[in-house]
């Protein structure tokens, strides 16, 4: 259990350091980049719950992101509810949408799940674009109130960044606890082999639904933060390209790990800024990255380099292991897989 304690300490220190550091960033441009990156990181972690830990593909995650943002926008602007109340409702509602999407789709696998989730994203985007009375259509929603936390106005980028870093750290902690718990074990089991999950008494559908709900809720949370920060939202932030770039982020960094999506976010945010002057080419490069990562390092950058480094340090140990790991039946089982 010392490992857990170590993780707690590391997260707490990192959280405090980042929050304090965020107060001293003078450069407004840099501040904006960091805040958007942190929101993307939350989004990537939410996709990772489905794609990485539960093995369920989601190609429509921008839908949840959009639902969260629009719930805040609509409730705040039209009904003048406070930002925090809007945020709670947004998280609950997008979690509920995750559950509703999960109900029919948990019985689907692979391709069909991909198509169904993609369809979900298209439907949400279609509704945002066309339900003029409520969503404002392509013009979107303006003048969303910036949140205030204990009389600290978060409309200042520094405070917002501090707040969002704290949220992100808390989320990382929660996900870590979940993954190390029986729930995480059940997820990893049904990801790798559903039949094993059945015979060990894991209620497969319930655990998939849990993953859908959590993932939807967290993506909605990211949406709510986005709305609170930008104070303006429009449907084209929540389109198919967004869904694809989230999943690219997760796969690039390494799905099924906590550090992977964070690393992916950092790399792609950096890339985005670097390509700022070639905005048309940004998505072209995303496309190339997605294909290249899947072809060359399908496990993602973080696990790839982690394994490289581990094997570098334990070369001697590996030689010993090789002696014992000669397995006369390995071939047979590989066929049976």
């Amino acid at each position: 259990m010392t490992k857990t304690r170590l993780f707690y300490t590391a997260i707490t220190i990192l959280c405090i350091v980042c929050s304090i550091a965020s107060l001293y960033i003078q450069n407004l441009y840099l501040l904006r980049v960091f805040i958007l990156a942190a929101i993307t990181a939350i989004l990537a972690l939410s996709v990772n719950i489905l794609v990485g830990y539960t093995g369920q593909i989601s190609l429509g995650h921008a839908g949840f992101f959009g639902i969260g943002a629009y719930m805040v926008g609509i409730l705040n602007v039209n009904y003048h509810l406070s930002f925090w109340l809007c945020m709670v409702i947004a998280v609950l509602f997008s979690g509920l949408m995750g559950l509703i999407l999960g109900l029919p789709t948990t019985k689907l696998k692979g391709h069909f799940l991909g198509i169904a989730t993609l369809g979900f994203g298209v439907i949400v985007n279609g509704v945002l674009n066309n339900w003029m009375q409520v969503t404002g259509g392509p013009q979107g929603i303006r003048d969303i109130q910036s949140p205030t936390l204990f009389s600290i106005p978060l409309e200042y980028g520094n405070y917002f960044l501090g707040f969002i870093v704290a949220c992100l750290s808390l989320l990382v902690l929660v996900i870590y606890l979940l993954i190390k718990s029986p729930v995480g074990r059940a997820w990893s089991c049904l990801k790798q082999d559903e039949i094993t999950a059945y015979v060990t008494g894991i209620h497969v559908y319930r655990y998939k639904l849990l993953a859908f709900t959590l993932s939807g809720g967290i993506a909605g949370f990211a949406g709510a933060l986005f709305a609170g920060y930008m104070t303006f939202i429009s449907p084209d932030t929540f389109d198919l390209n967004q869904s694809i770039s989230i999943i690219t982020t997760v796969i690039l960094g390494g799905s099924g790990t906590i550090a992977g999506p964070l690393l992916g976010t950092a790399l792609l945010s950096f890339l985005n800024e670097w390509l700022r002057n070639f905005d048309e080419l940004r998505l072209v490069i995303y496309g190339v990255i997605l294909v290249a990562v899947i072809v060359f390092i399908p496990e993602g950058i973080y696990p790839f380099f982690k394994n490289k480094i581990i094997s570098l340090f334990s070369r001697r140990k590996r030689v010993n292991q090789l002696k014992t790991s000669i397995d006369p039946h390995a071939g047979k089982d590989a066929v049976n897989e």
């Binding site: 718990s181 029986p182 729930v183 074990r185 059940a186 990893s188 089991c189 790798q192 082999d193 039949i195 094993t196 015979v199 060990t200 008494g201 894991i202 089982d333 049976n336």
Partner: peptide, 26 residues
């Protein structure tokens, strides 16, 4: 199972722990 069904990427302990799912605090 006739052809063993285990989670190949996990270690022995973790595989056995999966069997404890029903008793665990969830």
């Amino acid at each position: 199972f006739q052809t063993v069904r285990l989670l190949r990427e996990l270690n022995v302990l973790d595989n056995i722990l999966i069997g404890g799912h029903m008793d665990a605090q969830k």
